[in-house]
Amino acid sequence: MLSRVASSIYWLNRYIERAENYARFIEVNLNMTLDLPRGTTEQWEPLVFTTGDHESFAERYGKPTKETVIQFLLADPANANSILSCLVAARENARSVREVISSDMWEQVNRFYLMVRDALSNGWSRQSLHTFLTEVKANSHLFLGITDATMSHGEGWHFARLGRLLERADKTSRILDVKYFMLLPTVDEVGTPFDIIQWSALLKSASALEMYYKRFGRITPDDVTAFLILDSTFPRAIRYCLIKSEDSLHAISGSEHGAYQNHAEKRLGRLRAELDFGDIEDCLIGGLHEFLDRFQGQINFVGDAIYETFFAPRPIHIHSTIVGAEAQ
């Protein structure tokens, strides 16, 4: 597979997944603020911190309000990570690999883009916002389903899954982080019903509520955190994402599990092992936010290694005598 093509498939999937997760970010915040007691002000600043784009936000908008934050995350073409920008980028990547992906995949990306563009050109209201976020998630799921059902599960598909799951691992960690930034009315309320409501809103935004109940039954902060970080079977849990990403990486390079052929495999393998052999205490020991922050840094590190290993243009060395032997 051409390096450029592999890179486009990888990024196509990262952008679709990113758009979906931005919808989840906004949803988690809407859900949490809906349940705030009367008289408390809505908190939108945490959301901007969670995305890591707070500096570029502050430069252009100043103080965060509900309107500016949603505009920034949804429809701002100058924010490279807004849902609109993600769809533009996803579509451009899809366009450059149309001959490699199935036409059903291309048409879905295109329809998804058109839906987002048209919906955002009309502005948004509270009512339309909810419908829109649901549609973004549904369109992303549809793309994922079409990919699985119409693309051969070969090298290209593995690059797709790799991109999607690394992105998802990163974003699930950020959804968890929203709770860290979201201040409770008073410190005393940690562990109160109100706190629990927020944790369950968070699970809901990760589409994890039902699966969580099946596993743990009742909601406690530690169990929610453990579930979203360490579960090996829930598809939005970080550990699940790393396990499957690693499978794809090995399928691409043909090397065995437990060994590595390149930096990408080495870094991802170590990161996964840390979760395989870790528990919730390990995550909380230095503070959850600090843990998540470090994790995000390491995911970026894996991304860099994937770029260097598979996508970066590098000199090609071929021994002349071998080429000579191939001549007609």
Partner: peptide, 21 residues
Amino acid sequence: VELVEANDLVVVDGFVHMRTT
């Protein structure tokens, strides 16, 4: 067939190659 851009191709020892993963 593969769709390539000029940057995907390189001539080495007189033969044209494409850069793949």
